[in-house]
Design a protein around this nucleic acid. Sequence first.
DNA 1: CGGGCTTTTGATATCCTTCAACTGTTGTGG
DNA 2: CCACAACAGTTGAAGGATATCAAAAGCCCG
Lengths: 248, 248
Amino acid sequence: MNPLDATQHLARDFQTVEPCATCGSRIAGLCHKLDASALDDIAAESQSFHLAAKSTLFREGDPAGRAFSIIDGVVKLSRLLPDGKQQVVGFRFPGDVLGYGAGKTYPFDAETLTNGHFCRIERSRLDALLRLYPQMERRMLDLCLRELSNTQDQLVTVGRRSAEARVASFLLGLVEAYRQRGPLPAELPLPMTRSDIGDFLGLTLETVSRSFAAFKRQKLIAEPGQHRLRILNMDALLCLTEGESSQM
Amino acid sequence: MNPLDATQHLARDFQTVEPCATCGSRIAGLCHKLDASALDDIAAESQSFHLAAKSTLFREGDPAGRAFSIIDGVVKLSRLLPDGKQQVVGFRFPGDVLGYGAGKTYPFDAETLTNGHFCRIERSRLDALLRLYPQMERRMLDLCLRELSNTQDQLVTVGRRSAEARVASFLLGLVEAYRQRGPLPAELPLPMTRSDIGDFLGLTLETVSRSFAAFKRQKLIAEPGQHRLRILNMDALLCLTEGESSQM
DNA sequence: CGGGCTTTTGATATCCTTCAACTGTTGTGG
DNA sequence: CCACAACAGTTGAAGGATATCAAAAGCCCG
């Protein structure tokens, strides 16, 4: 139980305030509300490690031998299409689990957008732990259901919304991701590039840039510095999301 | 254990040949490989029922009090946007579980496209069963992981592919769904309308119609009758999916 | 047979992409 | 410390893929 403090800025009190035995994180990942013996087992089976920004956690097609839990940092999950285009499947934040899927290989690349702190565990060990601790398996199911729900939301956004509505939707999703993980700071980190956002939303980076510019002109958002975002008019963004042009 | 025979056309031997104790289905839904006592419990807690085509199983926003398993039939899951547009989140087939999600309300409408045969169970009972039978919870997790993977694939399709590539991708997905559920017949049922398909792919019904017309002209597919589909050139469809224009 | 869907097909409109040039930022080595 | 290269972002102009609008034909059910 060695508490680490690398997680303090983002990781306040997401569902639990007990630091995780594995890594000291106060974020409720897989280990949410486990009893002491389960936590000991996980601690024994998993390793904590750091990674610089723009590192690769794993690549699409690699044998899916390990699962990862994000203690701190932001990760981009993306798939490369034969024609070179990229689709970002999602962004992952502290508390999220990566690399535990249906197939035998990872279905996408996982790349850090920031410096990060992670936990890794062999998949076979994790499977054994899930069998051993039904509470943990239940937690995994809940994480999976939540992720499924988010992905379905994203499908609606990409499939049926205009460019500006998609960008607004992305911004609100970002706010929500941070809110779930602690008190919302006035300035949010925005570690992804216009290109990342575009690939997430099914848009080009230019279109994303134009939408950001439009939102700034309307004083809906501000970027006080590189990779820093300030939401000025949440309601207007919400309106945009719902299809109406913003008149607030 | 009353074997029903309503499932014979689609429901051949999807992962198991043992008919489900609950409903007689030979499709591996939730009850896949459960022991006798678990099956007895499920049978006691769940009810089987029929529904005509174009019926509503549940609506977006309804309290999510029950989960459903499809024994036979095809179901459309869709979300309605404020501006009246519809996004189809997915189509579900025999063996799939519906209505078991993260939230307290259903996140989408579920509507039958064909006559159907279903199993229903109170959510609280199902949760209790999942706690009681870890094998069943594991099965639920696997179903959820597979669904997540499919939804992520769909995100790539909608986000980054051209209209024809999306339609080709839908057709291949349909083939795959049927293949997983039994020997593939030469003629597949196509119970969804152009509009349903468009709402699934983020296209208008006209664009879907034009893509179908193009594929027929190129002899990639045929429609021998209403709601009947024949795949003539799978490889060319696969090619289209990957971005190249079909030259085969 | 008639009314309501579904589908097809054509003509036009539009939103977003593409292409291009330029600016701003960051990190690196001389 | 500055010069420079690489990368990220901005903005404009033009073109294209798909949406929208419209009309007609086909199909199903009462």
